[in-house]
């Protein structure tokens, strides 16, 4: 494991912790898209099915369990916890996220490295993860007041994607025959989706002003 990969994983972990902190401690999920959280729960559930079939390292297994557990508990919190649910921006969070699932599944059935059940689901999870942030970005744009924690959550998620790209560049040059177009292209698409957000985030940071995305 290289430093970019580790930094990427830690950034991902930090993003989840920030979100859990907001939900668990402040008992608020204002500005957080339940649609995006549901998509992430599906992403992890389909990608990490291999915890039953293959073992890489204790680190790998633990992190998978953390991401599975956190994504499902965030969804449950937002749906069923009374106080948290009340703060949910239901009227604003209207992205038709199920329409993302089917095209990703079809694409995974068409474009994959190996046609096996686990491999197709794994590929599906890559495609779905690439677009899963869209409902969250749309919600941010509609929310007038983005609080710091929600802004930091999206910033950390974007950072994690950027670091994974550096990790792939590093692995490409250090490991023989390390070429994975499916992962790279979907990872690149995913990172590009954050570009706009990053621009406004850095502006607000530079000018020491509250983050606000243009409508």
């Amino acid at each position: 494991m290289n430093i970019f990969r580790l930094a990427g994983d830690m950034t991902h972990l930090a993003s989840v912790l920030v979100l859990l902190l907001k939900i668990h401690t402040i008992k608020s999920c204002a500005g957080v898209s339940l649609k995006t959280q549901e998509l992430y729960a599906i992403v992890f559930a389909t990608r990490y099915l291999d915890i039953f079939t293959s073992f890489y390292s204790i680190y790998n297994t633990l992190m998978k369990l953390v991401f599975l557990g956190s994504s499902f508990s965030i969804v449950l919190y937002m749906k069923y916890h009374k106080t948290v649910h009340r703060s949910y921006d239901r009227e604003q969070d209207t992205f038709r996220h199920w329409f993302l699932v089917l095209p990703c599944l079809l694409l995974a059935l068409l474009i994959h490295e190996k046609f096996t059940f686990l491999e197709v689901l794994w590929t599906f999870s890559l495609y779905l993860e690439a677009v899963a942030i869209l409902p969250q970005l749309v919600l941010l744009q509609r929310t007038r007041n983005i609080d710091n924690l929600t802004g930091q959550y999206v910033f950390l998620l974007g950072g994690y994607r950027g670091l994974y790209i550096l990790n792939w560049i590093y692995r490409y040059f250090t490991e023989p025959h390390f070429v994975h177009w499916i992962t790279w292209i979907s990872g690149l698409v995913q990172t590009l989706l954050y570009a706009d957000f990053f621009f406004y985030y850095s502006q607000s940071w530079k000018n020491n002003k509250k983050l606000q995305l243009p409508a």
């Binding site: 990969r5 994983d9 991902h12 291999d50 293959s54 890489y56 390292s57 790998n60 992190m63 998978k64 991401f67 490295e113 190996k114 491999e119 794994w122 994974y164 990790n167 490991e175 025959h177 390390f178 070429v179 994975h180 992962t183």
Partner: peptide
């Protein structure tokens, strides 16, 4: 195999 190496990522 090459695919396996990609699967060690999260």
């Amino acid at each position: 195999p090459p695919q396996q190496r990609m699967h060690d990522e999260l």
